[in-house]
């Protein structure tokens, strides 16, 4: 007869934030070996835009009331940071999240541990924040050498970038959690939502020149709210109330998306 006394399991349940942080840790494990390609696309990509638009195209634009009286380079530097993070946020929240359910099944592996669906979503949001912050920082530092910033408000723009990125990311995560096909809808979202958004959100030119009939497209666009915040701080001229309004809109989008994603993850993983 066996006399082996079975050892009790060493596993235990940690709190929400500590558990969520483990998701960040898991992603970091991967990222530290694959960072070059990622940082290139998410941090350096908007810099190409900055070079082409800010320096190239910008050389043809005279500072005027339309550019807030500053060089075009200074006008687009903050909005191009946002453009970059929004692209990164949306693409990282679509196929990679779907893969966690469908192809690589990371989330199915995670749910077999003490981890709860809400922890996974929170961890993904935290990881996304760090990546967007890093991408924004790389952009900000290099853009400084271009002379793209007028003041230290650039640092604030990085954080607006994180907020704007997350406001776009969590709704897409929620959508990914209810996507069961191959995810073709993400390509459509990129083409029909994200790219048009960059044209109507005041990224390249002031929204005053957009006809009133389609101005609502601007108003619902998180990119515009972020751009207003970012420009308001770097170029000035944003009152407290609009400032708070833009902030509130982005936060509301982030939280609604987060709540929907949590529900979507819970239904898909525990059923």
């Amino acid at each position: 007869m066996s006399t082996v006394v079975q050892q009790r399991s060493t596993g235990r349940v940690l709190g929400l934030w500590r558990t969520a942080w483990l998701v960040v840790e898991a992603h970091w494990m991967w990222y530290r070996r694959h960072w070059h390609s990622n940082l290139f696309s998410s941090g350096l990509h908007p810099l190409l835009f900055l070079a082409a638009m800010g320096l190239g195209f910008g050389s043809q634009v005279r500072p005027s009331a339309a550019t807030g009286g500053v060089d075009y380079l200074n006008f687009v530097a903050p909005s191009l940071l946002l453009l970059g993070v929004v692209f990164t946020a949306v693409s990282e929240s679509s196929y990679p999240v779907l893969s966690g359910f469908k192809w690589q099944q990371h989330y199915i592996a995670m749910i077999a541990t003490p981890m709860r669906p809400g922890c996974i979503v929170l961890g993904l949001v935290q990881w996304m924040s760090l990546r967007l912050l890093l991408a924004g920082a790389v952009y900000t530092v290099i853009a400084t050498f271009f002379g793209a910033w007028l003041n230290a408000g650039a640092i604030f723009v990085m954080f607006v970038g994180v907020l704007t990125g997350l406001a776009c990311a969590t709704p897409v995560m929620a959508l990914a959690s209810v996507t069961y096909d191959e995810g073709n809808r993400f390509t459509l979202i990129m083409r029909l939502v994200v790219i048009p958004m960059t044209l109507f959100a005041g990224t390249f030119f002031p929204v005053d020149s957009i006809p009133l009939g389609v101005r609502w497209l601007t108003w619902i666009s998180p990119l515009w709210h972020g751009t207003e915040l970012a420009r308001g701080v770097t170029l000035g001229g944003l009152d407290v109330l609009p400032f708070l309004g833009h902030l509130a809109y982005l936060l509301a989008l982030l939280l609604t998306g987060g709540a929907l994603a949590t529900r979507g993850f819970a239904r898909r993983l525990v059923n």
Binding site: R8, G11, W30, Q104, Q105, I108, V270
Partner: peptide
């Protein structure tokens, strides 16, 4: 659920390792 899952091991039908 989480307290139980902390003390059991699960080997799923389909490998879901991080490749």
């Amino acid at each position: 659920g989480p307290r139980i899952r902390a003390r059991i091991g699960v080997c799923p039908q389909q490998d879901n390792l991080d490749t």
